[in-house]
Design a protein around this nucleic acid. Structure first.
Lengths: 337, 337
DNA sequence: GTGAAAGCGCTAACAC
DNA sequence: GTGTTAGCGCTTTCAC
């Protein structure tokens, strides 16, 4: 491992100057900077991140805490965050809290607090007040993605508005018996997301002069299989069958499409289906949906954090804008017969 | 931030003893250890990982390099690796090489070599000899998952054997016109995986006295949509239609099932379908498949690495066993009519 | 703009 | 089994 002093010697300057030249920040004459960079390149010098961190207090590393990794939303957010971090010279340390409470405590105690990260992004994770307080006490910026954390800046789409938009699409097509597949109570890893989407749905109905009927609501678990089951319940009944289904996620919506097919129905002729997400499979299934852009959410989270770590160095554009969403009409929605 | 000397003072011992007691390794009298642990707990002391790393040369962190994150295989391997690392007090730093070659070089130059990780796991990534050499020069253990890297220990299922097993299942049911959907040339992020699976398929056929026919092979891109397209080509023909399809991945196999349905065929009555993976959606679609266990592969990779980092501390059980796989018969395969 | 030197907070020899 | 002490390799005041 070649160290900073070798570079200094070769460049004919002091180690302090090497440090300044390479970190780019301070005032170094262009000539010196070139010399130093040449020397560093020649020797294949790379800073020791530990030494650098110990001396400066900066880790150039941010922690990302997720409840799952193998779901489209989470891995997409992580991907967006990772890319943006990389471009800014930061590493991403991943904490997957799939396990139970003990694992979670352990992550907090032994990892996050170990001075390993400069900041943390919590994805769809409701941190306790204590956890938030400890992070703040350490001066670590924190941002949430996918649900509000009390007292913490969080990036989410407006679930009520999104659900309303989806429902209104169906209403505009002429549907009036619109069912909704939402979350079940067990599904509470996140923040009232199912509830908010249901509220938006009911809001849109009410505004259109339609009374939301409890029998048109089915809970499910946000999986394709769950959506399939729920849709069969909805579409199998003899009376009052819905002409359209609004599922709270694309995976459930795809389950609905498959359920309809298995019942011999044709989508969208016999039933329209719309979801939320714009999941990678949505296009294949011709699913109309409200797109959210998780990669963009990951990027935005990083930008906020970097801005807090280096005030004024990043353009604040969009730091306080709500996350965008967008209706995408494909072939799973149409006018009722 | 409370430091080690405060703990030392409170416990009435030296900092060296605190370090020893807390790291567990060295010989410390039980009584002292208890005192130290109490003091540390009382003060809420957590080691500064940077200081510890700088002094010891250990990072307690391993780098995981993936080409994608939002695919079932990769996120599952990462999940398995993460869990095992966490249990052993290690962090996982993720490098997602989704971007192009420049990004990749940057990861190598500025991140992996920065002394940030003790070892690296490369998932389905063919490292160049130069990359491998540099890692070795730094003394960083490296293990691959999902494909052979020259001169590096790699964990994979035996793709030839897996494909053979799948094909033999179909043969045993009485099929003889068995099509195969494999990878297209563009799909080379990995190591001849499509080729090996095709070899296994052809081997099984040949062994059963059947000549592999080129017209029963269709390339695709390992996605559901790709499998769907390929299956339509296979099943739409007027003559010589296959009675069974062996797809090189579950996602493609699911595409086959959907294609068959859209053509008015019933699976498995009109066509049998088998995949490889045991993807999370396989059960929902009743897909017969050869399961591989990516989480287990991630765990195994970590165990090998930890064993190299701390020789003799881990049981070597299974370090050199090939990765397991297993035929899972569901409802997508049956005897031909 | 550049250099000298004092740490950053721990670990690991080495001595006892 | 425990204490003393010399670094680990940088960054950052503080001078100049």
């Amino acid at each position: 491992m070649v160290g900073i002093d070798e570079v200094a010697r070769l460049a004919g300057v002091s180690t302090a100057t090497v440090s300044r030249a390479l970190s780019g920040s301070a005032h170094v004459s262009p000539a010196t900077r070139v010399k130093v960079e040449a020397a560093a390149g020649e020797l294949g010098y790379v800073v020791s991140s530990t030494a650098s961190s110990l001396a400066s207090g900066r880790m150039k590393n941010i922690g990302v805490v997720v409840p799952f990794l193998n779901r489209w939303f989470f891995s997409s957010v992580v991907e967006g965050a990772q890319q943006t971090l990389l471009r800014n010279g930061y590493d991403l340390t991943l904490y997957n809290l799939t396990g139970g409470g003990e694992e979670r405590r352990s992550v907090f105690e032994h990892f996050l607090l170990r001075q390993r990260v400069d900041a943390v992004i919590a994805i769809s994770l409701e941190l306790t007040e204590d956890e938030v307080a400890r992070l703040h006490a350490l001066g670590k910026p924190l941002v949430g993605v996918g649900g509000p954390i009390p007292g913490v800046r969080t990036l989410t789409i407006d679930d009520v508005a999104v659900a309303r938009l989806a429902t209104e699409h169906l209403l505009a097509l002429g549907h009036s018996r619109i069912a909704h597949i939402g979350g079940n109570k067990a599904f509470d890893l996140d923040f009232h997301l199912p509830t908010n989407r249901r509220i938006g749905y009911e809001y849109a109905l009410t505004e259109a002069g339609i009374d939301p009927s409890p029998e048109l609501f089915q809970p499910a678990d946000f999986t394709m299989a769950g959506g399939y089951q729920a849709a069969k319940q909805l579409l199998g009944r003899a009376h009052n069958r819905p002409t359209a289904i609004f599922a709270a996620s694309d995976e459930m919506a795809i389950g609905c499409i498959l359920a309809a097919r298995d019942l011999g129905m044709v989508v969208p002729r016999d039933v329209s289906v719309i979801g939320i997400d714009d999941h990678e499979l949505a296009e294949f299934f011709g699913l109309s949906t409200i797109a959210q852009f998780p990669k963009g959410q990951g990027e935005a989270a990083v930008e906020i954090l970097l801005d807090q770590l280096h005030p004024g160095q990043h353009d604040q554009a969009g730091l306080n804008t709500p996350m965008p969403f967008e209706l995408i009409v494909r072939s799973s929605t149409a006018r009722p017969q």
